[in-house]
Amino acid sequence: MSDLQLLDPEILPPGLRDGHVVVGNFDGVHRGHQSVIRQAAEPARAAGRPVVALTFEPHPRSFFQPDRPLFRLTGRDEKARQLARAGVDATVVLTFDCARSTQEAEDFVADVLVGRLAAHTVVVGWDFHFGRARKGSPAFLAEAGPRHGLYVEVAPPYGGSTPISSSMIRDHLAAGEVLAAGRLLGRRWILEGEVAHGDARGRDLGFPTANIRLPPETRLAFGIYAVRALVDGRIVSGAASYGRRPQFDDGAPLFETYLMDFSGDLYGKPLRIELVSRLRGEEKFVSVEALVAQMARDVENARAALAAPEDPLAPSALA
Results as ranks from 00 to 15, higher is better:
Asn301Asp: 15
Arg213Ala: 12
Ala174Glu: 08
Ala180Gly: 10
Leu184Met: 15
Val122Ser: 05
Thr55Lys: 10
Pro60Phe: 11
Gln39Thr: 11
Leu54Phe: 11
Gly182Arg: 14
Leu254Pro: 01
Ala304Pro: 00
Ser165Ile: 10
Gly206Pro: 09
Ala229His: 03
Arg100Tyr: 13
Gly182Ala: 12
Val51Pro: 09
Phe222Val: 04
Ala307His: 05
His33Gly: 09
Asp89Cys: 07
Asp3Tyr: 08
Thr95Ile: 05
Ser316Val: 05
Ser2Phe: 04
Asp261Gly: 01
Arg116Tyr: 00
Arg76Leu: 15
Asp8Arg: 05
Asp97Pro: 08
Val124His: 07
Gln34Lys: 12
His129Ser: 09
Leu185Asp: 12
Ser263Met: 01
Gly223Leu: 07
Glu153Tyr: 08
Phe255Pro: 00
Asp249His: 09
Arg272Met: 06
Ala105Met: 05
Ala296Gln: 15
Gly182Phe: 13
Asp3Pro: 00
Pro216His: 02
Arg297Gln: 14
Pro60Thr: 14
Arg100Ile: 05
His59Trp: 07
Thr209Cys: 07
Ala40Phe: 04
Ala118Gln: 15
Asp127Phe: 07
Pro246Ser: 01
Ala80Pro: 02
Ser101His: 09
Phe248Glu: 01
Ser137Tyr: 07
Leu306Lys: 04
Leu205Arg: 02
Gly131Ile: 11
Glu256Pro: 01
Arg68Ala: 12
Ala53Phe: 09
Val51Ile: 13
Leu94Met: 15
Gly131Glu: 09
Ser165Thr: 15
Pro208Ala: 04
Val36Glu: 08
Glu194Arg: 14
Ser161Ala: 15
Gln39Asn: 02
Arg45Lys: 12
Arg213Leu: 09
Val93Pro: 03
Ala200His: 14
Leu70Val: 10
Met168Cys: 03
Glu143His: 10
Gly19Ser: 02
Gly238His: 02
Ala196Arg: 15
Arg76His: 00
Gln294Asp: 06
Asp97Ile: 10
Trp189Ile: 07
His59Glu: 08
Ser241Ile: 00
Asp298Phe: 07
Val152Asn: 03
Arg272Phe: 00
Ala80Arg: 01
Lys269Met: 09
Pro43Asn: 06
Gln247Tyr: 00
Leu185Ser: 10
Pro253Thr: 06
Ser263Ile: 00
Gly24Lys: 11
Pro50Arg: 08
Gly243Leu: 05
Gly160Ser: 12
Gly186Asn: 08
Thr102Lys: 06
Met1Asn: 05
Arg100Cys: 14
Arg61Gln: 13
Ala290Arg: 12
Arg234Asn: 10
Cys98Val: 13
